[in-house]
Nucleic acid binder design. Structure first.
Length: 150
DNA sequence: GTTCTGACA
DNA sequence: TGTCAGAA
């Protein structure tokens, strides 16, 4: 494995939330809900968990975010059922966005003052012309259309 | 010490 | 939902 692909793998891991497993206590503490609620939400099918060898629940960072999302809606006055429904819809978008990030981050490289990612071909446009996004250190970001070769 | 399931004020 | 029990 060369240093380039290793770099890409590191970036993937950073945005891969499935590699971090948290205990029910960690999640409850982080989003300020009871372990009782977490187990109940899971029984209702609103969140998921993996069961360890010792029979204990393990949550991904993604699930922590989902549970926090549900808790947030509940605090805004929504019922558990509607809060879970809203969260499920948000999750579909986030899953898709994460999938996008994981695949596109392969084509990233450093540039002066930031990082640039080749987002690939643009539908109905010359295949040589790729869309790029530049993420600058100062927080700015912008798109560019230019030849695929860096 | 933490988590699990089931049950009950 | 909180909390307690009894076990892992």
């Amino acid at each position: 494995m060369n240093s380039s692909s290793n770099h890409a793998n590191t970036l993937k891991k950073i945005i891969d939330s499935d590699s971090l497993l948290l205990s029910i206590g960690d999640v409850a503490n982080a989003i300020d809900v009871s372990t009782r609620q977490l187990r109940y939400w899971e029984k209702k099918g609103y969140i998921k968990s993996k069961i360890s060898k010792s029979g204990q629940r393990k949550y991904t960072y993604f699930t922590l975010l989902q549970a926090g999302d549900i808790a947030g809606y509940i605090n805004e006055g929504y019922t558990l059922a509607s809060a879970a429904e809203k969260t499920a819809n948000n999750a579909r978008i986030m899953k898709r966005l994460r999938q996008f990030l994981q695949t596109r981050f392969d084509n990233g490289y450093e540039i002066e003052g930031g990082y640039e990612i080749d987002l690939g071909e643009i539908k109905d446009v010359d295949a040589e012309q790729h869309l790029h996004i530049d993420l600058m250190e100062d927080g700015e970001s912008f798109f560019q259309i230019k030849k695929k070769d860096k």
